[in-house]
Amino acid sequence: MKNFYKYSVLACAILLAACQPKSEPKESQESQDPATIQQQTEPTLRGESVKVALTLPECKGNTCPDFVVERLQSNFSFIDQFLDEQILDQLSKMLDVVDADKAISTVQAAEQKPNLDTQVQHYANAFIKIDEELKALSISHQISLLVKPKILQTEGSLATVVLNSSSYMGGAHGSTSQRYYNFDLVNQKQINLNDLLLAKQQAALKKLAHDAFKAWIVDSKLANNPEEYEQAWPFEMTDNFLLGENGLILQYGEYEIGPYVVGLPRLVIPFDQLKGVLKPEYLPKVDVPAASTVVADTKSKT
Rank of each mutant, 00 (worst) to 15 (best):
P65A: 13
V97R: 14
L56V: 11
L72Y: 13
T293Y: 12
P57T: 14
Y252S: 02
V50N: 03
E24H: 14
D99E: 11
E111K: 14
L145N: 15
N182F: 07
Y229E: 00
V186R: 11
S74M: 03
A290R: 12
D184L: 10
D131E: 09
L91H: 11
K129S: 01
N225W: 01
E70H: 08
A212N: 01
T36K: 14
S167Q: 15
R179D: 02
N187G: 11
I217G: 02
A53K: 05
E132Y: 04
K60M: 07
F271M: 01
M169F: 15
A296L: 09
Y181H: 07
L283C: 14
K285N: 04
T41G: 05
L264P: 06
V9H: 06
S77D: 03
D272S: 04
Q73A: 07
L83W: 02
R266E: 09
L15I: 10
S177A: 14
Y168Q: 09
L196C: 05
G61D: 02
V295L: 08
I104N: 10
E30V: 06
K301H: 06
A109E: 09
P259Q: 06
M94P: 05
K2P: 09
G174K: 13
A223T: 12
L54V: 06
E70R: 10
I257F: 11
K102N: 03
A172V: 15
F183D: 07
K214D: 02
N192P: 00
K221G: 07
L222I: 06
D272L: 01
V52P: 00
L222D: 05
N125W: 05
L198V: 00
K93R: 06
E48I: 07
N224T: 14
C19K: 15
R46G: 10
A232T: 06
L137E: 05
K26C: 15
F78I: 02
G258S: 06
A18H: 08
N194W: 09
T44Q: 10
K2Y: 11
Q29A: 15
A199V: 07
N194H: 12
D272K: 03
A215D: 04
V68L: 02
